[in-house]
Amino acid sequence: MSTVPGGIPIPVDWYLYLSAALFMVGAVGILTRRNLFIMLFSLELMMNAVNINLVGFSGFHQNMTGQNFVLFTMAIAAAEAAVGLAIATALFRNKKTLMVDLFDTMKG
């Protein structure tokens, strides 16, 4: 068990397993769903998985840098949510749908 004496009593591997599970759930959401909003939700899930890793290692290494980085991740997540929702609104206004495979104007 990877714990530190006098530190957080939860082993750091548990954070890693939880984070991996949450990240892969988010990845499944991105890969399988057609709905643009569910894909944005899945992105948020994956970012939260990263945050769990950062906080877990912050407790394990007894270092504040991990927790500081969570703040930056949240700032980027807020920016991503704002821009993503703006793009979704603009797309919905032009195409009247949110299913991503119908946005094929550029034949990607």
Binding site: S2, G7, P11, V12, L16, F60, Q62, N63
Partner: peptide
């Protein structure tokens, strides 16, 4: 990595912020 069975082990680099 975490079970230290294959030669790796996670070592805590303590930066001086224990809960106490």
């Amino acid at each position: 990595v975490t079970k230290a069975k294959y030669g790796f082990s996670l070592a805590s680099v303590q930066g001086g912020y224990s809960p106490d």
